[in-house]
C-alpha cells in the first residue's frame, strides 16, 4: 500500500528545497469520484495530491505540453518538473527521454507502483455496480473500495480494472527518482490476449470489424490530444503550414498537400488511425489513454498492441524499456525479417 502522506511530504519537500519548480500529480476532481490532473508550485498545495484507482491519466502528456509553451517555464523558473508516474507513465517518460524531448535532469519522476492492481475502468464499473455513483475510490489489496451513499462497496479489482492493467507488463515504474509502493508479482492475463484472439478471425471478418469501428469515428482527435507521443507541432491531418499571404492564389490553397482529410469519412478515418498506429510503433507504451477517452469506444489499443507485438516479436524491441535504446524505425538488425520481399 502506498502511504499518501509520504507522497505528499515528498512533493512538498522537493518544492520547498527548490529541487523542482512544479509537481504534476492528481487531485480530487469535480466529476464525481474521478481524480483530475493538477500542477502544483507551492509546498502547501501538496496536501491536495491524491493517489487512488481513478488516477488513470497519463501525466507524461503535461511534460510535453509544458515544453511546447515556453511562457509556462517562467512560472517555475526553468527548474525541473516533477511528475507522479505509474508504471506505464514512467515508460512514456522513458520514450520521451529516448527522443530527447527533454533531458533526464529536466524531469523528476515520483514513481507510484500500482502493485497488484491497476486503475479503474469506469465503463466496467457501471456494469459491476449499476446505478451506483460512488463518491470516492481507494485501493485495498486486491480490491477497490468505493464510498457510496449506502456505505462501502468492495469490488475485486480484477472485475473493474482497465484491460490494459490486466495485461500490464510492468506496474512498477522502472524509471524513477523516488518510488512509492512495492514491486508486487502480478498474475493477470498474458499480454496481447485480445490481440491473439482477434488475429485468428478471417481477413474478411477483420475488415468488417474495423470498417464498423472506423465508420463511427467522429474525428474529435481526443486520442491524439491525450497521447504523450502525439506531440508533433503539425499533424499529418492538419496541413496548416501553408502560409497564406495576399499573393496566395486560390489554386495554391486548393493544391496544398493533404495526405488525409480532416473531415470524417470512412477511408480518411482509417487512414488517420493507421497513420497514428504506425507513428506510435515502437513508441506506444500501452497506457491505454486513447481508448479510454474515445467517445465512440473504438478499440484503439488493439491497433497499437499489434504494432507493439510486431516490434517485440520481429525486432526484439520493447518500447520504453531503456533511455539508451535507439528508436524502432531509426535502427535495424541484419536479420530483420525480409522473406516478404521478392
Amino acid at each position: 500500500m502506498i502511504d499518501l502522506n509520504a507522497l505528499r511530504t515528498q512533493a512538498a519537500d522537493i518544492l520547498e528545497t527548490g529541487e523542482v519548480g512544479a509537481v504534476i500529480g492528481w487531485r480530487r476532481g469535480s466529476r464525481g469520484m474521478a481524480a483530475e490532473p493538477v500542477a502544483i508550485v507551492a509546498p502547501e498545495e501538496a496536501a491536495s495530491l491524491v493517489w487512488d484507482p481513478t488516477c488513470f491519466h497519463n501525466l507524461a502528456l503535461y511534460l510535453v505540453e509544458e515544453r511546447k509553451k515556453p511562457a509556462q517555464r517562467q512560472v517555475h523558473g526553468g527548474k525541473p518538473i516533477a511528475i507522479v508516474a505509474k508504471g506505464c507513465d514512467a515508460r512514456a517518460v522513458t520514450v520521451l527521454l529516448q527522443e530527447n524531448h527533454f533531458g533526464r535532469d529536466d524531469v523528476y519522476v515520483i514513481g507510484v507502483s500500482c502493485e497488484g492492481t491497476g486503475v479503474l475502468d469506469e465503463r466496467k464499473l457501471a456494469q459491476v455496480l449499476p446505478g451506483v455513483e460512488p463518491d470516492g475510490a481507494a485501493f485495498d489489496g486486491d480490491n477497490f473500495v468505493f464510498a457510496t451513499s449506502e456505505g462501502e462497496r468492495r469490488v475485486p479489482a480484477r472485475e473493474a480494472m482497465m484491460d490494459r492493467c490486466l495485461e500490464c507488463r510492468n506496474a512498477h515504474p522502472k524509471l524513477n527518482n523516488v518510488v512509492f509502493g512495492e514491486e508486487t508479482p502480478r498474475d493477470f492475463d498474458a499480454p496481447f490476449a485480445a490481440l491473439k484472439r482477434f488475429e485468428q478471425r478471417p481477413a474478411a471478418e477483420r475488415w468488417q470489424f474495423w470498417q464498423r469501428q472506423f465508420e463511427r469515428c467522429i474525428r474529435c482527435f481526443a486520442c491524439r490530444s491525450v497521447c504523450p507521443m502525439c506531440y508533433c507541432d503539425e499533424c499529418v491531418v492538419d496541413s496548416i503550414n501553408l502560409v497564406v499571404t495576399p499573393e496566395t492564389t486560390a489554386a495554391e490553397k486548393a493544391d496544398r498537400v493533404r495526405w488525409i482529410e480532416r473531415s470524417a469519412s470512412r477511408a480518411d478515418n482509417i487512414g488517420y488511425h493507421m497513420t497514428r498506429a504506425l507513428h506510435l510503433a515502437g513508441r506506444c507504451v500501452d497506457c491505454g489513454e486513447c481508448e479510454r477517452v474515445c467517445p465512440v469506444n473504438i478499440p484503439l489499443r488493439l491497433l497499437n498492441n499489434k504494432m507493439e507485438r510486431e516490434a517485440r516479436e520481429a525486432f526484439g524491441y520493447e518500447p520504453g524499456a531503456s533511455i539508451d535504446l535507439p528508436a524502432l524505425v531509426a535502427s535495424f538488425r541484419d536479420d530483420d525479417p525480409g522473406q516478404f520481399i521478392r
Partner: peptide
C-alpha cells in the same frame, strides 16, 4: 525493410488483402 514490414503487417491486420502491398529488391 523494417518500416515497411510494419505497414504490411498493419494492412493485413486491418483486413486489407496482403497482396495489395509488395516490396522487391
Amino acid at each position: 525493410r523494417r518500416k515497411l514490414y510494419l505497414v504490411k503487417e498493419l494492412l493485413e491486420f486491418a483486413g486489407v488483402e496482403p497482396e495489395r502491398f509488395r516490396m522487391s529488391w
